[in-house]
């Protein structure tokens, strides 16, 4: 299975009325890879999933799966399985009924279908839920049911649309690890959509950042984080976002450029070159976020350790890590 499921999107374009959801998108997904599409709402990431699944058709462009253009192939002939954001479990069927649904539609014999459904349920640890209805299960269990249903499709590509968005924070953390483990075990190409930048960093071999229907940058998460291709990516990945100073300002004058520095690359240093006043301090337990303002009005966010010993209203001096300054073109926003 590991060598199947290579996907190539070629100049894919899709508009809904006057809204351009996808604008000439090229994207290559290697077989067996887990790739994360991340971007704000309306960036086109879900549209890409729907086009690959065949729930929608592009205005232009090709979707090539394992060397074959599938644009005209109906959804059920494409070997893709999709996990929807709210899981789309059939409310009138038991969990077992939900798992059997696709098998029965594909006319798998009842006994064989049930054997496979139980095996998938075992694998995801939901074997004791089979007689329940979806509304009698928890959010995390529903997510597993949806995954088991996708598993039974035996696809060459998994499409996960915000699979963790409906879970609460602790569960999300655990499920993230489970998803990764499952992907490693199956080795099946997986495209995962999220608007959560923490998920984008942790899930997936590569991450593609989308904005307004265009791919802004694609690469391994750490690389995209360390070397954002433009000011949008710089501002989107990382929380709190990168400090961007047009013209360089307090970070050192640079005409025609926007200078950027991540909050963790600004250190409190009594000999530091930047003078600033603390406006607010957010203690997050393991770290503290300082919101500061320089005399020229520039606001800088600083990530520092717990208990930094400064209060709002106090003056501090900051030292940027010179090796971690980012330079962007003021006109285009592109990295220079």
């Amino acid at each position: 299975m590991g060598n199947r499921g290579a996907i190539r999107l070629e100049s894919l374009t899709r508009s809904y009325g006057r809204v351009v959801a996808l604008d000439d998108v090229d994207l290559e997904v290697r077989a067996g890879e887990m790739i994360t599409l991340v971007g704000p709402s309306g960036s086109g990431k879900s549209t890409i999933l729907r086009l690959i699944a065949g729930l929608d058709r592009p205005d232009q462009g090709r979707i090539v799966v394992d060397g074959q253009d599938v644009v005209r192939v109906p959804p059920h002939r494409r070997a893709v399985a999709m996990v929807f954001q709210d899981y789309a479990l059939y409310p009138h069927l038991t969990v077992l009924g939900n798992l059997l649904f696709g098998l029965r539609v594909r006319r798998v014999r009842r006994a064989e279908a049930e054997r496979r459904a139980r095996a998938a349920a075992d694998r995801l640890g939901i074997a004791d839920l089979l007689d329940r209805y979806p509304d009698q299960t928890s959010g995390g269990q529903r997510q597993r049911i949806a995954l088991a249903r996708a598993l039974l499709r035996e696809p060459t590509v998994y499409l996960l649309d915000e699979p963790l968005a409906s879970l609460d924070a602790p569960l999300r953390f655990a499920t993230r690890a489970d998803l990764l483990a499952l992907h490693r075990e199956l080795g099946t190409t997986t495209i995962h959509v999220t608007h959560d930048q923490a998920e984008a960093m942790t899930l997936g071999d590569r991450v593609a950042v989308l904005d307004r229907g265009r791919v802004r940058q694609i690469g391994p998460p750490q690389q995209v984080y360390d070397e954002p291709a433009d000011t949008f990516v710089a501002g989107f990945l990382g929380s709190p976002p990168m400090n961007l100073v047009p013209g360089g300002g307090v970070l050192g004058g640079a005409a025609g450029l926007i200078l950027g520095v991540r909050p963790e690359d600004l250190a409190l240093d009594t000999d530091g070159p930047i003078e600033a006043t603390v406006e607010a301090a957010e203690a997050l337990g393991s770290e503290t976020i300082l919101l500061t303002r320089c005399p020229d009005g520039t606001r800088l966010t600083v990530r520092t350790g717990p208990r930094p010993g400064v209060r709002p209203g106090e003056g501090v001096r900051l030292r940027p890590d010179p090796g971690r300054l980012h330079r962007f073109d003021a006109e285009t926003g592109r990295r220079r």
């Binding site: 959804p75 999709m82 709210d86 649904f101």
Partner: peptide
């Protein structure tokens, strides 16, 4: 509507 999309993906 997603239920119908899920079903369509299954070939229904």
């Amino acid at each position: 509507g997603r239920l119908y999309e899920a079903a369509a993906l299954e070939g229904c």
